[in-house]
Amino acid sequence: MGGYVLGFQEIDQTQVAIVGGKGAHLGELSRIEGIRVPAGFCVTTDAFRRIMAEAPSIDNRLDRLSRLNPDDRETIRTLSAEIRWIIEGIAIADDLAAEITLALARLGEQAAYAVRSSATAEDLPTASFAGQQDTYLNIVGPAAILQHISRCWASLFTERAVTYRLRNGFDHRKVHMAVVVQQMVFPEAAGILFTADPVTSNRKVVAVEATLGLGEALASGLVNADAYKVRDSEVVAKAVATKQLGIRASPGGGTHEEAIDPERQDQPVLTDAQVVRLAQLGRRIEAHFAHPQDIEWCLVDDAFQIVQSRPITTLFPIPAVDDQENHVYISVGHQQMMTDPMKPL
Results as ranks from 00 to 15, higher is better:
residue 108 G to V: 00
residue 107 L to D: 04
residue 104 L to C: 04
residue 91 A to V: 12
residue 113 Y to L: 09
residue 97 A to G: 07
residue 110 Q to D: 15
residue 103 A to G: 01
residue 120 T to N: 10
residue 94 D to M: 02
residue 89 G to E: 06
residue 103 A to I: 03
residue 114 A to Q: 10
residue 103 A to M: 11
residue 105 A to V: 10
residue 118 S to N: 12
residue 121 A to L: 13
residue 90 I to E: 00
residue 90 I to N: 05
residue 89 G to M: 01
residue 105 A to Q: 03
residue 112 A to V: 05
residue 92 I to C: 04
residue 97 A to S: 15
residue 91 A to L: 10
residue 114 A to R: 14
residue 109 E to M: 07
residue 95 D to F: 10
residue 112 A to T: 03
residue 104 L to Y: 10
residue 90 I to T: 08
residue 91 A to C: 12
residue 91 A to E: 15
residue 112 A to S: 15
residue 92 I to A: 11
residue 109 E to R: 00
residue 116 R to Y: 06
residue 89 G to Y: 08
residue 104 L to P: 02
residue 110 Q to E: 14
residue 94 D to G: 08
residue 109 E to P: 03
residue 106 R to H: 13
residue 113 Y to K: 04
residue 103 A to K: 08
residue 110 Q to L: 11
residue 119 A to M: 11
residue 115 V to N: 02
residue 120 T to L: 11
residue 113 Y to M: 01
residue 120 T to M: 06
residue 99 E to Q: 03
residue 112 A to C: 11
residue 90 I to W: 06
residue 99 E to C: 07
residue 111 A to L: 01
residue 89 G to N: 07
residue 102 L to S: 15
residue 119 A to H: 07
residue 98 A to E: 14
residue 115 V to K: 03
residue 93 A to K: 15
residue 97 A to R: 15
residue 116 R to C: 07
residue 105 A to F: 02
residue 117 S to Y: 03
residue 111 A to Q: 08
residue 105 A to P: 04
residue 94 D to V: 09
residue 111 A to N: 06
residue 102 L to D: 14
residue 107 L to N: 00
residue 90 I to S: 01
residue 108 G to D: 08
residue 114 A to G: 13
residue 112 A to N: 01
residue 115 V to F: 01
residue 91 A to R: 14
residue 110 Q to S: 13
residue 92 I to K: 14
residue 110 Q to V: 05
residue 115 V to E: 02
residue 107 L to C: 03
residue 103 A to W: 06
residue 108 G to N: 05
residue 97 A to C: 13
residue 96 L to S: 02
residue 105 A to L: 08
residue 101 T to L: 10
residue 117 S to C: 05
residue 107 L to S: 00
residue 92 I to G: 09
residue 119 A to D: 07
residue 105 A to T: 01
residue 121 A to V: 09
residue 108 G to W: 00
residue 93 A to R: 15
residue 94 D to F: 06
residue 117 S to I: 01
residue 120 T to S: 12
residue 102 L to E: 13
residue 115 V to Q: 03
residue 92 I to R: 00
residue 101 T to I: 07
residue 89 G to D: 03
residue 115 V to P: 03
residue 101 T to Q: 15
residue 98 A to C: 08
residue 119 A to S: 14
residue 98 A to K: 13
residue 120 T to Y: 08
residue 113 Y to A: 07
residue 108 G to A: 00
residue 118 S to W: 04
residue 94 D to P: 10
residue 108 G to C: 02
residue 106 R to M: 05
residue 116 R to D: 13
residue 116 R to H: 01
